[in-house]
């Protein structure tokens, strides 16, 4: 049985209607520039008894990612159509480690406080990923997640 989506997609392709817009193709090609060679991907993990996304008493949303002995806790708030990210990486990955908060259009590099905290503000909504660069070790990158305004 062919899924309806594939079936209709095949008809649409055959009809030549609604071709892929050039900006969508260009964005797909630009994705390659976001490659982090040798990165280990951190996947969402449950926080205590809850799921990977938890709302805290202040209304912020928290999400946890784990890989290669590193845990990222990200707190996302949305205001005026822009995204603020406050995070903590645990255990502290070392003094020379830095965090990149990446979106398809913008990468902000942040130093990590002694307690593992970092923050980035005024990000555009859409796809987001956080990378921890550790000297002498493979970078750890969270899975890309989509943040809505």
């Amino acid at each position: 049985m062919i899924n309806d989506e594939y079936f209709l997609a095949a008809l649409r392709l055959a009809a030549g209607n609604d071709p892929i817009p050039s900006h969508v193709s260009a964005a797909a090609r630009d994705v390659y520039g976001l490659r982090v060679p040798r990165a280990v991907t951190a996947t969402p993990a449950a926080r205590a008894a809850a799921g990977p996304d938890v709302r805290d008493p202040d209304g912020c949303h928290l999400v946890r990612f784990v890989a290669d002995g590193l845990t990222f806790d990200l707190e996302v708030t949305v205001g005026d159509g822009l995204i603020d990210v406050a995070g903590q990486v645990c255990p502290h990955p070392g003094e020379d480690a830095v965090i990149d908060v990446k979106t398809p259009h913008l990468t902000l590099t942040r130093h990590i406080a002694r307690n593992g905290d970092f923050a980035a503000t005024g990000l555009p909504p859409g796809w987001l990923s956080v990378v921890c660069h550790r000297p002498g070790r493979a970078p750890v990158q969270t899975r890309w997640v989509r943040i809505r305004p």
Binding site: D4, E5, Y6, F7, L8, A9, A10, R12, L13, D18, P19, I20, P21, H23, V24, A27, A28, V31, L34, P104, G126, W127, S129, W144, R146
Partner: peptide, 26 residues
């Protein structure tokens, strides 16, 4: 082009389809 067609055939608007396609490449 096939990914775009699948996203649109799934009922997404052009802007959501663009996001879904970009997300799949990511």
């Amino acid at each position: 082009p096939r990914m775009w067609a699948v996203a649109r055939a799934s009922g997404l608007s052009p802007s959501d389809a663009a996001d879904a396609v970009q997300g799949s490449w990511l």
